[in-house]
């Protein structure tokens, strides 16, 4: 797809087009010489650099959802906590939500700063084996808005992947903003050399959310990103007083279950809506440690186990996810 700079002349064919620098619209453009030389068409050197950097990272998992507020960050944080529960597993969590980073809050790291070392930026450590990186650590106040357009966000993501001193890792979890846009394309593109194990897709049961999630699945298919499975969040609500279950977000079209059957994707699990999850996120604690015997924690553990199995079984490089993940 053509890559058109923000300030390009009208009818710019795009820097990666065959016609770059040669089309009639390119006459008089200050970058015409660069475009016609073919230099911009070469792959971004960062892809190779990132591949080198990521050679010490065993598994890379992207957490996606088309819809906002369905619990991507909550899930990413708990996946990181659960994987890091085993002390021999090195886990890192990267937050590429540039405009609304919530990982620092959920991990209880608000106000932390990133330090620079000889080998790059040092991530912030929650535990010895759990590193976190987010743009939230680079802001002077949590109220600061990052009002950036796409290209600047892409530059930041490139730096996160290339310039952060991740060290030896078993798992790198990437938490994304909602949508199918700059951040997602960048992550997939920059990690294309290193290879992503797969994507976990988060949804809530109602159709308004599922319709955006179907778009996200279509995106994964377009960019050939294997899907580990779908997690349905906020499935049902158990009243803390009377213990009755109610559906806050009614699955009018069969919920994630139906969607997964239709698209033949594995449904990793259905996490009930528990007010304690939200509370522990607000306080920056792990729900899995706070209330380990709750039904929601059990579902989380099962989901984490199937993701572990998926990664351990060695995803096939041709992009076919294993079917035995349920």
């Amino acid at each position: 797809m053509a890559d058109i700079p923000n300030d390009a002349p009208q009818h710019c064919p795009g820097t990666s087009s065959e016609q770059a620098g040669k089309a009639s619209a390119c006459q008089g453009c200050p970058n015409q010489a660069i475009c016609s030389s073919g230099a911009p068409k070469a792959p971004d050197p960062a892809v190779e650099e990132i591949k080198l950097k990521m050679s010490t990272v065993k598994h890379k998992i992207v957490v996606l959802s088309g819809k906002g507020g369905v619990g991507k960050s909550t899930f990413s944080a708990h996946l990181a906590h659960a994987l890091a529960a085993d002390e021999s597993t090195e886990v890192a969590l990267l937050d590429v939500d540039i405009c609304g980073p919530s990982i620092p809050r959920i991990m209880g790291l608000e106000g932390e700063q990133v330090h620079q070392s000889g080998s790059g930026w040092s991530p912030v450590y929650v535990e010895d084996n759990l590193a976190v990186m987010s743009i939230g650590f680079l802001l002077s106040s949590p109220d600061d808005a990052v009002i950036w357009r796409g290209p600047k966000k892409n530059g930041m993501i490139k730096q996160f992947l290339r310039d952060v001193d991740w060290g030896e890792l078993d798992y790198l979890i990437v938490d994304t903003p909602p949508g199918t846009s700059d951040e997602h394309l960048s992550v997939v593109q920059y990690l294309s050399g290193a290879g992503i194990d797969g994507a976990v897709i988060i949804t809530t049961p109602q159709e308004v959310s599922l319709q955006d999630v179907r778009k996200e699945i279509r995106f994964c298919q377009k960019v050939k990103l294997p899907i580990i499975g779908v997690v349905e969040n906020m499935s049902s609500f158990v009243c803390p007083k009377c213990k009755n279950t109610s559906q806050i977000f009614p699955p009018t079209t069969g919920g994630a279950q139906r969607m997964c059957e239709e698209l033949s994707l594995p449904l990793l699990g259905r996490v009930p809506l528990d007010p304690r999850i939200g509370r522990s996120c607000d306080e920056g604690k792990s729900f899995l440690n706070e209330v380990p015997d709750s039904p929601a924690a059990a579902v989380y553990q099962a989901i984490v186990q199937s993701i572990k199995d998926y990664c351990a079984s060695g995803f096939s490089s041709d992009g076919n996810p294993n079917a035995d993940n349920e």
Partner: peptide, 14 residues
């Protein structure tokens, strides 16, 4: 198709 994803970068959206 309602399931079509708009995989666009910023300038196109603008």
């Amino acid at each position: 198709d309602p399931d079509d994803a708009i995989v666009w970068r910023g300038p196109k959206k603008t």
